[in-house]
């Protein structure tokens, strides 16, 4: 009784790509947006964390 398990394997790797992919993309875009926004409002010359937001 040989069962075809390929769909389950593909489904698992698909879930991994989808979940990790969505998490990392949302993280990336949020990080970029936060840096740009802070760079826009940071007073020049006194920010510490702002220095990295170039």
């Amino acid at each position: 009784m040989v069962k075809n398990t390929l769909p389950y394997v593909v489904g698992s790797y698909g879930a991994a790509l989808a979940i990790i992919g969505i998490l990392s993309l949302t993280t990336f875009f949020r990080y970029r947006a936060a840096r740009r926004r802070l760079a826009a409002v940071e007073p020049r010359g006194r920010g510490e964390s702002g220095s990295a937001a170039s």
Binding site: T27, Y31, A34, R37, E42
Partner: peptide, 20 residues
């Protein structure tokens, strides 16, 4: 990587909000 980037984003968002 994701945790650090999100923490960093959170700090920057808070700081931008406080500055505004």
């Amino acid at each position: 990587a994701m945790s650090l980037a999100r923490i960093s984003s959170g700090i920057m968002e808070n700081r931008a909000r406080a500055l505004l």
